[in-house]
Design a binder for these strands. Structure first.
Lengths: 229, 229
DNA sequence: TCCCGTCAAGAGCACTGCTCTCGCTTTTGT
DNA sequence: ACAAAAGCGAGAGCAGTGCTCTTGACGGGA
């Protein structure tokens, strides 16, 4: 008796192939990719797809999970590249990795960070992978603070904000000043905004040299977060 | 002979009603609203809609244009409220107006700033209205600089960035230092990111008090842009 | 060997955007 | 005032969609 029966093996390969074909369709059709078209591309009848994914939304969820995984891995790998205390280098590397991944997989990025798909509600299993990129970014600040290379911001946060961020600090970065977390989240927000504007064509006419623009704007946020030059 | 014939009057009313019904459907169906459903809601047959909008995309374009107009008006009105030299007040008012409009019209905001609709290419007529909000925001910086209340940033921009932003400066804000424009665009990017994260549910679990969070993060960007307290 | 579970296939339902034709009414030109 | 032209709603129809259900064939565990 094989550890995985022939059936199970074939089934796993089928699922992988469906996801691969669906990813291709995602690039042209966005979130309303067609199961029938995927089935056609695979030489099967549409109803057969439902043996592997009980609905179109489940297929979407699988693609979303894989995309989060890929983006999270890319950012994590980038952040681990430079010396641990080269804060600015790590910040830039992480941001660049996120943007590069997005430019290489625009449809998947849009699926993750674009408008929510009308009838679709992201299941809970997506929340943890979705948190990885911002957590990785803020991790740079944690490291810098621990090494004494970042001075925590002087400002005191107004109350409801401090309490909310305090919960996040307690859960993910014990000891991190809330004001520093706030600046880290600003950096993450800016990164998302820069990538989205770029990808969704908002800079098309205005800024021809988008790589350089991105690097500079990312550097501005590094200043705001207090990363030493 | 009436200045506008009965037919023309009825036609204009029809177009308005179609847009109104479509806006309602937008809220539930997002960008894939259905012409047939709109027609059903109006008690007509689907083919009749095509007398008024030659395609679904044209209807979308009309909705997009009106949405840009509404958002642009809201931001412009907010910016004109406070004293002209109350830079921080104007910045906060403008950002708040944009967010309020987005929260009141989430589907329309998603149409403007969410993932691009798959088969749809925004016609040229949308580019000017799309520029209004950021131009209004940077206008605050122009006013502050002219009044001597903002010190232009000390940094020198790396070359391709300076040249690109120089074109924008020449076109829209003659005399404005490119570095200041860069910071204004960072503010606009951050505003878009904050609203999107809020609207697309990315803060749901993490930040319960989103109004206060928004105000604080917007204030951070005011600091970055050099707005005096 | 037998039988149960899995599979692909096909038909079918309700829906979509869009086109075309058919009559009817309003507007326009003479 | 009358006819031609243009605008209009209704309906049928085409190709496509997600999804369900039934049918028949095949493989693997007992």
């Amino acid at each position: 008796m094989p550890a995985s029966s022939i059936r199970a093996r074939v089934r796993a390969e089928m699922i992988d192939e469906i996801k691969a074909v669906a990813r291709r369709h995602l690039a042209t059709d966005g979130a309303n990719l067609s199961l029938r078209a995927v089935a056609r591309d695979m030489g099967m009848v549409s109803s057969a797809i439902y043996r592997y994914f009980p609905s179109r939304d489940e297929l979407l969820t699988a693609l979303i999970l894989e995309a989060y995984q890929a983006l999270g891995d890319a950012v994590a790998a980038a952040v681990a590249g430079p010396d641990r205390l080269d804060l600015r280098g790590r910040w830039h590397a992480a941001c660049r990795a996120a943007r590069d991944w997005a430019l290489a997989h625009p449809a998947e990025y849009a699926l993750l960070y674009g408008s929510p798909v009308p009838g679709y509600a992201a299941p809970d299993e997506t929340v943890e992978p979705a948190q990885r990129p911002p957590l990785t970014l803020v991790g740079i600040l944690r490291d810098g603070l621990a090494a004494g290379r970042i001075d925590p911001p002087a400002e005191v946060l107004p109350e409801p904000v401090r309490a909310d961020l305090g919960e996040l600090v307690a859960a993910f970065f014990p000891g991190l000043p809330e004001a520093l977390l706030a600046r880290g989240m600003a950096g993450w927000t800016q990164l998302f905004g820069l990538i989205s504007f770029d990808l969704f064509g908002r800079l098309n006419r205005a800024v021809p040299h988008r790589d350089a623009y991105f690097e500079h704007q990312i550097g501005l946020m590094a200043d705001l977060m207090g990363l030493p030059a």
